[in-house]
Amino acid sequence: MSASLQKSVLPRVTERRRHQRVRVNLLGRFMLENKQEYPCQVINMSPGGVALIAPIRGEIGERVIAYIDHIGRIEGKIVRKIEGGFALTVDATSRKRDKLASQLTWLANRHILDLPEDRRHERQQPKAPITKLILEDGTEHICQVLDLSLSGAAVKTKVRPKIGKPVKVGKIRARVVRHLEDGLAIEFAAVQDRNMLDENLR
């Protein structure tokens, strides 16, 4: 993605916020300092901050760890409460912030640029295709990974969770995006590290 395109989506501003927020609709989970985990929905985000809707709001200054679809893990502190949720700052290195800016640019422009979500990374065959599909209720099912990329996989299985439902394939968090004739197409919650992909599937 060109630097000019990134600037058009995420211009730097000299106001209260250092980065302009991008309106998004991303699902995820977060953990407060009490180690309890809750679902959430991110409604806007910048490389420096996030606003999300959640069933519990936490306290100002409380540390939060969140796992957001398409973004991955972020950490920060609650800076204010909003209706139905809260906003937090993102604690990250300059390199991590640059990566977040690129991810947000892609999310903001994917419809304009007509980027195919499920084919943005090259497909490959897994080294060890047999693994576990873990459903939202914790039940485990042996499955076969037919092919995969850094962002998703096709899985042969008899179970049919509804489209949009969260699942895990091995250690990787994902969600169901399509039903196939003999299985599921799933999208990973975050783009995977190529060097860790096969290990995380086991």
Rank of each mutant, 00 (worst) to 15 (best):
2 S>D: 12
10 L>M: 07
11 P>K: 04
18 R>D: 04
22 V>W: 05
22 V>Y: 06
24 V>L: 11
26 L>D: 04
27 L>H: 13
28 G>N: 09
30 F>W: 02
31 M>A: 11
35 K>H: 14
37 E>F: 04
42 V>I: 06
48 G>I: 01
48 G>S: 13
49 G>C: 05
51 A>F: 03
54 A>C: 11
54 A>I: 08
56 I>V: 14
56 I>H: 14
56 I>N: 10
59 E>S: 06
60 I>S: 06
62 E>Q: 15
65 I>K: 13
69 D>W: 01
70 H>I: 00
77 K>S: 10
77 K>G: 06
78 I>C: 02
79 V>M: 09
80 R>K: 14
87 A>Q: 03
89 T>V: 06
92 A>H: 05
92 A>M: 05
92 A>L: 08
93 T>F: 07
93 T>N: 05
96 K>V: 08
99 K>Q: 13
100 L>Y: 03
101 A>H: 07
102 S>W: 06
102 S>D: 10
104 L>A: 05
106 W>P: 00
106 W>G: 02
111 H>R: 15
115 L>E: 15
116 P>S: 09
117 E>K: 15
117 E>T: 11
118 D>N: 10
121 H>P: 00
121 H>Y: 15
122 E>F: 12
122 E>T: 15
122 E>R: 11
123 R>V: 05
123 R>Y: 06
127 K>P: 00
129 P>L: 03
130 I>Q: 09
132 K>Y: 10
134 I>G: 00
136 E>M: 13
138 G>K: 14
144 Q>M: 09
147 D>Q: 07
151 S>F: 07
153 A>E: 02
156 K>S: 15
160 R>D: 00
162 K>D: 14
165 K>R: 11
168 K>D: 02
171 K>R: 06
171 K>F: 11
174 A>D: 02
181 E>A: 14
183 G>L: 05
188 F>N: 02
193 D>Y: 13
194 R>W: 01
197 L>P: 03
200 N>R: 12
